[in-house]
Computed example of a mutant assay.
Amino acid sequence: MTEPRLIPISALQHYAFCPRQCALIHTEQVWADNFLTAQGNVLHERVDSGEPESRRGIRYERGVQVSAPKIGLVGKLDLVEREQATGKLFPVEYKRGKPKPSDWDEIQLCAQALCLEEMTGQNVPEGALWYHQTRHRQVITFSAELRQRTLQVIAEVAAMLASGQTPKAVYGKHCLACSLYDLCNPKLMQQDTSTAYTQQLFATDTANEETPE
């Protein structure tokens, strides 16, 4: 019997940002770095490379591997703080930029808490997002609404990856920040027919044909 595929926690944020981006990365195995992702990689490498330590009754564990088959997730957490007196767990996710208007980051952090809960059997009521651009820690409470939203995204990602289908491109302002913009070609894929797309691929300097924007 084939074991169900465990979804990387990072796929949830990719999906919340753009379902097509999620499919390109996790189904088609397409990836490219830009300046923003490179900065993020350096930040996470710096965080993950830190040694475990204890300060003022708190144990700090970095690069924590988690696996939660019941909810279908696997991943690595930037930082987990544990109160040594009570055992209470507190996940912290590091982000390159600043707080976002949508709930992408909150979903990713909540998923981390759900994994910790499945693995330890204890309740994880809150965690934090730390943003490099603002140097500020934002505490997130894992409300019933956020938990339900996170479980919904997990189910949607699982269904999309199981289908093997990549959603069509839907161009928006968020596309400009995406490292896969050139590979995805959202404007081209959304606006042009396959004939026009083929013409654009094989056009020569002397063809004197109009190409899509």
Rank of each mutant, 00 (worst) to 15 (best):
M1V: 11
P4K: 06
P4Q: 08
L6D: 05
L6N: 08
I9S: 02
A11S: 14
H14F: 07
A16G: 04
A16Q: 11
A16M: 14
P19I: 06
R20H: 06
R20C: 02
Q21C: 03
C22V: 13
A23D: 08
I25V: 15
T27D: 12
T27F: 06
T27E: 10
T27S: 06
V30H: 04
V30D: 01
W31N: 02
W31C: 04
W31I: 00
D33L: 09
F35S: 10
L36N: 03
T37Q: 03
T37L: 09
Q39H: 11
Q39T: 07
G40T: 11
V42R: 12
E45F: 06
V47E: 13
D48A: 14
D48K: 08
E51H: 14
E53L: 10
R55S: 11
R56N: 12
R56S: 12
G57M: 10
I58W: 05
G63D: 15
V64M: 06
V66D: 02
V66G: 01
S67K: 14
S67Q: 13
S67C: 14
I71L: 10
V74S: 08
L77A: 00
L79A: 02
V80L: 04
V80Q: 03
E81T: 01
E83D: 15
Q84I: 15
Q84A: 13
G87Q: 10
K88G: 07
K88C: 12
K88L: 12
F90Y: 14
V92E: 04
Y94E: 08
K95T: 01
G97F: 03
G97M: 09
P101W: 05
P101G: 12
D103F: 10
W104S: 06
L109Q: 03
L109R: 01
L109S: 01
Q112T: 07
L114H: 04
E117H: 08
M119E: 10
T120K: 10
V124N: 02
P125H: 00
P125M: 05
G127T: 01
L129V: 03
L129D: 02
W130A: 09
Y131P: 02
H132T: 06
H132G: 07
T134R: 11
R135S: 13
H136T: 15
R137D: 10
V139I: 15
I140A: 04
F142M: 04
S143K: 11
S143L: 15
Q148I: 14
Q148T: 14
T150D: 00
T150M: 01
Q152I: 14
Q152S: 15
V153F: 10
I154L: 09
A155Y: 08
E156I: 07
V157L: 09
M160V: 01
M160T: 00
Q165D: 15
P167N: 09
A169H: 01
V170G: 07
G172H: 14
C175I: 03
L176K: 09
L176S: 07
L176A: 13
L176V: 13
S179W: 03
L183F: 05
N185T: 02
P186M: 01
P186D: 00
K187Q: 02
K187I: 03
Q190N: 05
T193I: 02
T195H: 03
A196R: 00
T198Y: 03
A203I: 05
T204K: 13
D205F: 11
D205Y: 11
T206Y: 08
E209G: 11
